[in-house]
Amino acid sequence: MKIIIKDLRASINGQAILKGVDLELDSGHVHALMGPNGSGKSTLSNVIFGHPAFEVTGGEVLVDGDNILEMEPNERALLGLFLAFQYPVEVPGVTVGRFLKRAVDIRAGESKTKGFVKELREMMDYLEIDQQFINRYLNEGFSGGEKKRMEILQMLMLKPTFAILDETDSGLDIDALRIVSKGVNKLREGNFGALIITHYQRILNHIRPDYVHIMYQGRVVTSGGGDLVDALEAHGYDWIREQYGIEEENDVQSVSSD
């Protein structure tokens, strides 16, 4: 799968967040997207999926040549895209088991009972999730770490071709981070690509990215190999700003969704 983002512009409540994002992603590689708070990283992931709060004001997102911006979020998912939410949504009254069965059936285009429960149990074991979670309502009353692990469980069950992980590492202790990374690395064995959105380098010690992209003030300002992470870690985001001659914009505020 090849994802080409061209001059993507989007706003929320009339405020421009994405100001012309250009980015190329593909399955077969893990990409990291880094940048300071408010740079538009989370907005980018939600615009790729069609979050109703954001308005696309220009540009396109091509998946294997087709612009997906007019598609419903579920149509985008059925192309093989997956989004691990920064803040997974609680869905009361819908058990994890029932939800995943339905989601897997939709993905497969048919109802397959055979092997589902077995695979679910194996994946839960792999991610060190207690089996009792099958009968709990999705994300309701889960701790932050449990919610993030549940996102990874969904990813393993749905087997996307390309996954976007939106700050999955934030708020995770080292143990949870290890488990989440294990989940991503498991898929990496096949035809799979990912965009790891993060503020910190920590998760990238567990999931070594093939490419790193730096976002600043609504644009991707530079891309490079995995070694860019180390440079960023050593010099900080100010170094990026100076390096690429970005001036402080007074009108840019930190956006809460990022």
Binding site: F49, P52, N74, L83, F85, P88, V89, V91, R102
Partner: peptide, 13 residues
């Protein structure tokens, strides 16, 4: 609408 969006991203129409 957020719950709706969440399920849609999982393939639910």
């Amino acid at each position: 609408p957020l719950q709706l969006y969440y399920l849609q991203t999982r393939g639910f129409s």
